[in-house]
Amino acid sequence: MSKTDLEAAYALQTPDDSRRLYGDWAKDYDSTFAAKEDYELHLHTARAFAEAGGQGPVLDVGAGTGLCGLALAGHRVKPVDGTDISAEMLEVAKIKGVYRKTFEADLNVGLPVEGAPYAGVVSSGTFTTGHVGPDAIESLMPVAQPGAIFALSIKASHYESAGFAAKFDALSKGAIRDLTLTETKIYGTKAQGHHKDDTALIAVFTKI
């Protein structure tokens, strides 16, 4: 992945922009971005979910090529379903063999899920500038059971300015409890470029 690809991801403005970028990126995302740039956020998100006592069935939101699902499997969390706006990304995710099922969806519109089948929800790298904003968190709530554990990564530099802090304040007034925020590096020691020191906050909480 080139620096231009990453900047393009942060500059996304519409769902169609996301579909085009990630559709083109899907086949070599793991090798040119995740491996080359020592991407580790999915590992931290999956670990935070497991350490909080998270169990399946769990929905991996913004599953992409399945990196977080693979990390969840490493913690013996199952079954895991995956959703993403990019059908091409999900095709790559399926190959990893860790998802019970996958389905395409736009968080800004809602999830095509009936009832509240999930005991957990995770998301790594989706809630950030250019992707989806804090209002989309509410679209996750209906699919989760009461008592479901969430672990959502949010780019730290946008937590206040993009309205995530205000959204969690509002949700804490009756929709969620036990919110914790843990700051972590997005990339490992081999990362290079302008974003190598970027951090994310992993929000862990329980649905009431």
Rank of each mutant, 00 (worst) to 15 (best):
D28P: 06
Y29M: 00
D30P: 14
A34M: 15
K36P: 09
Y39K: 11
L43G: 05
H44I: 01
A46G: 07
A46Q: 02
R47F: 02
A48W: 06
F49E: 10
F49C: 07
G53L: 00
G54F: 01
G56K: 00
D60W: 13
D60F: 14
G66H: 10
G66N: 07
L67G: 10
G69M: 05
R76Q: 15
R76G: 11
P79M: 06
V80C: 09
D81Y: 09
G82A: 03
T83F: 09
T83N: 00
I85K: 00
I85L: 12
E88R: 08
M89R: 09
E91Q: 13
V92D: 03
I95W: 06
K96C: 05
K96T: 02
G97S: 07
V98E: 01
V98A: 02
Y99G: 04
Y99H: 01
R100H: 09
K101D: 15
T102S: 09
F103D: 07
E104I: 13
A105F: 08
D106G: 06
N108V: 11
V109T: 15
V109S: 12
V109P: 08
L111G: 08
L111R: 00
L111W: 05
P112C: 15
P112Q: 02
E114M: 04
V122C: 03
G125I: 07
G125E: 05
F127C: 13
G130C: 10
G133Y: 13
P134C: 10
E138N: 11
E138Y: 12
S139T: 15
S139Y: 04
M141S: 08
M141N: 08
M141I: 15
P142M: 05
A144H: 13
Q145G: 09
F150R: 05
S153D: 03
I154P: 04
A156E: 06
A156Q: 10
S157G: 01
H158Q: 12
Y159I: 02
E160W: 06
G163R: 00
G163T: 09
F164Q: 01
A166T: 09
A166E: 14
K167C: 05
K167G: 09
F168I: 11
D169W: 08
A170H: 06
A170T: 12
L171M: 11
